[in-house]
Design a protein around this nucleic acid. Structure first.
Lengths: 130, 130
DNA sequence: CTACACCTTCCCATCATGGGAAGGTCAAGC
DNA sequence: GCTTGACCTTCCCATGATGGGAAGGTGTAG
């Protein structure tokens, strides 16, 4: 299987597969005589793992830790759970920050006429001198 | 006022002030004979505006649009409101995405013993073949 | 044998921010 | 006046994850 097919099968772009290999997240695959990367099913499985971890918001670094735990048959589930819950806390923190911004701005917008007149509490507030 | 004092007074780092100038977000200030940037109160006011817009999650580009509207005494508040509400929608979308990730992961974690045993539904799910 | 799809590596861009080096300036204290 | 330390200047580099694209090699179908 060449990189294009591995990309198709895993949902990770060829570009990103090469990048993950370059930064050491995944193992370099074997190469054909002409230098093409050749992937087998286990590689694709790993790529899918990476894609899912990323889609859960784990950084590439964190994904590396998860991969290590995944491959370690003697890991303690406590280690995984701790990593996961720490990540959950970070996600919720970021979400809360975004929602706070949205709420503030929505409030400002609700006081804005939104017509042809120039008066606008949104700009007034952002530009407030205090 | 030199750049350090402007940074102090506006809450925007000196590094960022130079950057904002470089990309054309703010006007180049006057220079002293020796080449130092010299800021006056209106410049600091603008910098504070930029800082507040950024802290509400507006990109530098969007902040530029807001600045233009802010300085245009004949703007229609409708234009500002539209920009703001579009941004609110984006913020809420991002927040929702993060929360969905957090919820998924929290659910997986709730099914994980979190003890010394290796069995872990979190890794099982991330590594699922389907 | 040609055309086309695919592969390789390499460089560049994004977005906003910080770090740091090399060198010039300014004010305070001696 | 001279030194010292804080400040300023520009320039380059790094981040994190991803995509774009160029230049050139490979593989396969017709």
């Amino acid at each position: 299987m060449n990189i294009g097919q591995a990309a198709e099968a895993s949902g990770v772009s060829a570009k990103m597969i090469r990048y993950y290999e370059q930064i050491g997240l995944i193992e370099p695959p074997t190469r054909s005589q002409s230098g093409y990367r050749v992937y087998a099913e286990p590689n694709v499985h790993t790529l899918r793992f990476v894609r899912r971890a990323r889609s859960l918001g784990f950084s590439v670094d964190e994904t590396g830790s998860l991969l290590t735990l995944w491959r370690d048959r003697s890991r303690a589930s406590a280690d995984v759970k701790r990593l996961a819950l720490k990540h959950v806390a970070e996600l919720e923190e970021k979400a809360a920050a975004l929602q706070a911004m949205a709420a503030t701005l929505r409030h400002l917008a609700s006081n804005c006429h939104g017509d042809q007149r120039p008066d606008c509490p949104i700009l007034d507030k952002i530009g407030a001198s205090n």
